[in-house]
Design a protein around this nucleic acid. Structure first.
Lengths: 253, 253
DNA sequence: AAGTGGTCTAGACCACCGA
DNA sequence: CGGTGGTCTAGACCACTTA
């Protein structure tokens, strides 16, 4: 009974049948999340296939995010059903700021701040945390203001100032340079805003007029927050597009 | 000269060395984008490894997006350097509308429309195209309006009306049901808006007050547009968060 | 020390594509 | 038809984790 199911009238490759069977078993709870899949040699015997075939099948489970493999330990069931059905991708974090092409950045000011309750809420940090804040504005070639950007970084990174003002490099690239850490995660929160007075003055629009508030949080390893930027865009200057694609189950050769 | 480079003092697995060498050759233009990599047997001989090892190496190139493999054709070089550095994922398109949890949908009206120039611009369709439009509003449990949503679908799908009004199913799930097609791509465009009079009345906010305009375009195979929705959110009710993660080069076991 | 997954060989046959 | 990548076997040794 152990081997019979696999062979019969199947046209699909064996490893795919094996993948499907194991995925079904996992979905039905035969192999619980957190438990171990049977070792590869055991699967070989049970399904009467070579180890290569078993490994190809388990690899697919791994690609689907259902299991993870660990040398010396075994194959751990990670999820009962595959997730992440849709995905979007960026070739660089710069794509989040596509509007910045052919624009120039002006550095308006710099100050040291300790986050009060309101700012801590905006930055999602602890109240009292120290930051260096740069106040900047980005202009299109026609001179129109596109965004009022406030950048918050750790004290001690003031050396970024010149490079930031030059506008040669991406801000988050400088964050990586000065923190010595790769940005592992970037979170972008977009919401509506009534443009506050100071931003309005900089952007040349009416105070309280409709705008877009974009907050970006940059994280390194261990979810350590490396930097935050608060961006206020006036109405009509930019929009934010994200394309989500259905993930195909199989990896194409 | 052909085999020597691979073996010498290497601690890394051979297939990884092979991957690195091929990736370097591709980056340096030895194998141009669009051309074919040498066939697997040839690579086996050149590097004095078995076909399994070659295939493992090429598989990694495939994972990195540098090449694609085609049975009966060969391995085509797709890019000189790997791309898609950051990605975001959704377990379902419903995650785009996370705010809809514990809310109720009210169907306000239905009409047939032919897109005039303004609407065609909004929907990114041809002027004159026919649509069925549903006018809806979503309310939080506390009774506050969250979004004024206008949904546009193809004529002939009026049967969706009841299911949509029930609020039992996701709107895009109904699109898949009635079109008989999977939604392969969903594009979301977020911009600032001065809430138009009609939306303002429905949402209970002042006309021209700040709000968020979210347009969503749903595509099937061949980029065929299946449906569009126009969503106006008042200030402060929702925000849109996307988390981008750095893609690790290697696939973990 | 025992058992796991990771790597690798040397074969084999098949499905698919283009000439 | 010949050549490509796709699948598969039956071995082997290794690196790693756990006990």
């Amino acid at each position: 009974m152990v081997t019979a199911d696999l062979l019969p009238l199947a046209s699909a490759p064996r490893y795919q049948q094996l993948t499907a069977m194991l995925a079904r078993d996992i979905a039905q709870g035969r192999y619980a999340v957190g438990s171990l899949l049977p070792p590869e040699p055991q699967l070989c015997e049970r399904f009467s296939v070579s180890r290569h075939t078993v490994r190809e099948a388990v690899r697919k489970l791994c690609d689907m995010g259902l299991v993870s493999r660990h040398q010396g330990v075994g194959t751990v069931v990670r999820a009962a059903t595959s997730t992440n059905h849709y995905s979007a991708s960026l070739s660089s974090l710069g794509d989040l700021m596509a509007y910045a092409k052919d624009t120039r950045l002006q550095l308006l000011g710099e100050r040291k701040v300790q986050a009060d309750l309101a700012l801590a809420g905006q930055l999602r940090c602890e109240p009292g945390q120290s930051w260096v804040e740069w106040d900047t504005c980005r202009f299109a070639q026609d001179g129109a203001a596109i965004v009022h950007m406030r950048v918050f970084v750790s004290p001690g990174w003031e050396g970024m100032r010149e490079e930031l003002a030059q506008g040669q490099a991406w801000f988050f690239g400088l964050v990586e340079k000065y923190s010595g850490e790769r940005i592992v995660e970037a979170r972008q929160v977009v919401s509506a805003v009534a443009v506050p007075a100071r931003s309005a003055k900089i952007l040349g629009v009416k105070s309280r007029s409709p705008g877009l508030l974009v907050r970006r949080f940059y994280f390194g390893r261990d979810q350590r927050m490396l930097s935050v930027s608060l961006n206020v865009h006036p109405l009509g200057r930019v929009d934010f597009t994200t394309s989500w694609h259905l993930e195909e189950a199989a990896r194409k050769g």
